[in-house]
Amino acid sequence: MYGRKASQLVKELTGGEKGQLKAFNDDLFNQVIKECSSHHVGLQALFRNMQEEGLDIQTTRNADFYGALIHHLSLTRNKRCLMAYMYNRAEVIRSLKWKLGRVLPNELVTKLSNSEKEYFKGYSAALDAYMNEMNLDLTVDMVPPKDPYIQVRVLDDIGEVLLTDRSANLARYSMHFLKRTDAEQYICQGLMEELLS
């Protein structure tokens, strides 16, 4: 049936948790693209028929015309589905920049298509350029601050780092009382957790 593959593609977006990315479905994606081309071929064949019969495409409403119309509508629907698939994935990819910073972990990179990898780089660059011009890092401070300092436990060996007010040795399983803005980046990367009393 026309359009079924495209709808399967869009359904890929809904499965799984929100904000999670599935591997880019190359196979299905290309099948939909192929379907588009065959619609186009079908469409042109029907138009040629009409021309050979000497009919005016603008005004004639015969079986060939409606056949061509079905092809056209299926094609635009497929296009919308393809775009929705890319666009919604792009949204998730953007959120990764906010959560993880410039560099993506390998298991995520393998889920992206080549164009999506480029897209991530391009988006990162555009956002970084904006933050540079504003002289402000927007990726910290994502939740309204309650207390400027928070209690954290380090989950992985981070080592000696320079914080805004001092340097600290963030050894694994050590606990610290840090400025929220300092801690946030590590929490996002899963290297640290906030201890809630």
């Binding site: 693209i33 186009h40 298509s113 164009s115 897209y119 660059a125 904006y130």
Partner: peptide, 25 residues
Amino acid sequence: FTRRYSEVIGKHLEESVLLNLPDNY
């Protein structure tokens, strides 16, 4: 930002979808 980012997303959508579609689409 808008200028830079629109180029990025435009290129992304074109390369993955649009250029693979028939001319009129």
